[in-house]
Design a binder for these strands. Structure first.
Lengths: 130, 130
DNA sequence: GGAACAATTAAACACATGTTGAATTGTTAT
DNA sequence: ATAACAATTCAACATGTGTTTAATTGTTCC
């Protein structure tokens, strides 16, 4: 351990910080962000968030698209196994919900916060936040 | 590739989704979330976001704490090398800024969106979003 | 029942990521 | 200049993560 041997350098600030960390569900929060921290998964959420205007016939409100595993696999150019894997993760974190319909399984967003989360992220990225 | 061989199953929805993905800086967004997706890094941001009320003497407004690498290493129980590594990442993404003061280097939050981003995350996590 | 197809799961692999200890750089004090 | 100490960088290692192919499950149609 290369940690400083001299002393706790700024005890007051440290105490404050500890207090802030104490109550926070840090693990869960990081886990959520980790789930979002993959381009394919963010892409899935973004795609599912895209509103389909003149519903072709599968009409289901206008709160977001509904896509099957096949669609997503083609959309991102990966195997459906990979997509399935990602979807399982997203589902475990209540970010998407699934609904079987015949041979296919359709996925849709399951959380109203996700869109806001993304827009905040965009804000940061747009402002040159590398 | 196990991808569905039959056809593009839902062309309209796919077209919409493609449009939504087209404009979005997906890579950057995911990168940002990936940076936040580590407990130590989220912890650092949370710690730096904690407001130190009765400034002991290092007074610098009330918009957040200022901690040196040593403090953070002790706070999370890892080597200062590890902390330094994380800080470099956070800095590269304009999430923190640094300021040298004598032998030490102090870090502080560098972005006003971060707090909001976190609060959105908390919202989700609190609501049982596993 | 069996065939066809979408979805999931399992096993295995390549690659990225976080950590460490050692070496290096930067700053202050003697 | 040398010593002391904080911070960073380097090299190396252990562990995670995303992907693939293959096998399995679920559903529809014949």
């Amino acid at each position: 351990m290369d940690v400083c041997t001299q002393s706790a350098l700024h005890p007051e600030a440290l105490r404050e910080a500890r207090a802030a960390l104490e109550g926070a569900p840090l693990g869960r929060l990081a886990e959520l962000f980790k789930v979002l921290g993959d381009p394919t998964r963010s892409g899935i959420l973004l795609a599912l968030g895209s509103t389909v205007p003149d519903g072709g016939g599968e009409g289901e409100g206008s709160s977001g698209a509904r896509l099957c595993v096949c669609d997503l696999a083609e959309l991102f150019g990966v195997s459906s196994a990979a997509i399935s894997h990602h979807l399982r993760l997203l589902k475990a974190h209540r970010l998407v919900r699934s609904r079987r319909e015949g041979k296919m399984v359709f996925y849709a967003l399951d959380d109203e916060h996700v869109a806001q989360l993304f827009s905040q992220g965009f804000e940061h990225v747009k402002e040159g936040g590398r």
